[in-house]
């Protein structure tokens, strides 16, 4: 009996030691995997917030006529998407169909839905119309559904001649192109050097940040940028801008974003001469 008990207790000790090791590990894991910050549930909550906005699908004209802060639901086609913000379960999407363009800022969707949205995919989005520093957008939106059937990929509209005119704003968020622009110098405060592009608007950034460059047309200078969340440093357009030289003639394509004025998010640059 004593031998049996000794064996049993020894076994218990061994199992105990093993369990303690595992337990310690589990314990620390539990402590460190504590849901410190926020968002896993972000997309869920964003969804519930936007759900209130879900309503009848509006036409583009109805959407444009809607007041700021009004609940809106639209159907349109994905033209491009910024990188997925996994922490909060959102993505910013450029949308356009035959009638007009939309910008859905931080639209709630799952990673799977994000992956399923390719150029041309038709989707239904609900949210609230907003104006942020001049940009008309859908705020606090959610992806209601990815729609089967018709897809649409917009042809870029040449708005070169509209640069500097009030009419340009009426094409906000559309896929556009500019032709025959001249790369103009960018400068950094306190530095007389002329640059063809800058990382961040004032040159304070490094590779990987947004890239800004100036273009000249009809004697006026405009500032364009490659938005790094849309086209990161591995993309052709990012590299093309890094290779620009002052004085070159270029054609650009992108989306007519607005921030206190025209602020195109450029997706393609071609050196024409």
């Amino acid at each position: 009996m004593k031998k049996f008990l000794s064996v049993l207790l020894a076994l218990g000790l061994a199992v105990s030691a093993t369990a303690c090791a595992g337990g310690a590990s589990s314990s620390s894991e539990a402590a460190s995997s504590e849901p410190e910050a926020t968002p896993a549930a972000e997309s869920e909550a964003a969804t519930s917030e936007a759900a209130a906005a879900t309503g009848e699908v509006m036409t583009y004209d109805e959407y444009m006529a809607a007041a700021v802060d009004e609940a809106v639901t639209i159907e349109s086609c994905v033209q491009a998407k910024q990188s997925y913000y996994a922490e909060q379960g959102t993505a910013t999407v450029y949308l356009q169909d035959e009638d007009g363009a939309y910008f859905a800022y931080d639209m709630a969707c799952t990673q799977e839905e994000y992956d399923a949205m390719t150029e041309g995919t038709r989707i239904r989005v609900s949210g609230y119309k907003a104006e942020w520093s001049g940009e008309i957008e859908i705020m606090d939106g959610q992806l209601d559904e990815i729609l089967e059937g018709d897809t649409y990929v917009a042809e870029p509209l040449d708005v070169t001649e509209l640069l500097g005119t009030d009419e340009l704003e009426s094409h906000q968020n559309e896929k556009v192109k500019f032709t025959g622009l001249t790369v103009a110098p960018s400068t950094i405060e306190g530095d007389t050097t002329e640059y063809a592009f800058l990382y961040n608007y004032d040159g304070s950034g490094t590779q990987g940040d947004d890239v800004y460059f100036n273009v000249e047309y009809n004697g006026e200078t405009y500032q364009f940028l490659v938005e790094s969340y849309l086209c990161d440093s591995s993309t052709d357009v990012y590299k093309a801008v890094e290779a620009l030289e002052i004085g070159q003639t270029i054609d650009c394509e992108g989306f007519l974003y607005w921030y206190e004025g025209v602020n195109p998010h450029i997706t393609s640059v071609t050196v024409a001469g």
């Binding site: 995997s33 504590e34 410190e36 910050a37 968002p39 972000e42 996994a86 909060q88 608007y201 921030y259």
Partner: peptide, 16 residues
């Protein structure tokens, strides 16, 4: 231009 910041929500579960 000042870049419009992404929401400063932190990566909870990722952190964990």
């Amino acid at each position: 231009h000042r870049t419009r910041p992404a929401a400063l929500l932190l990566a909870a579960c990722m952190a964990g």
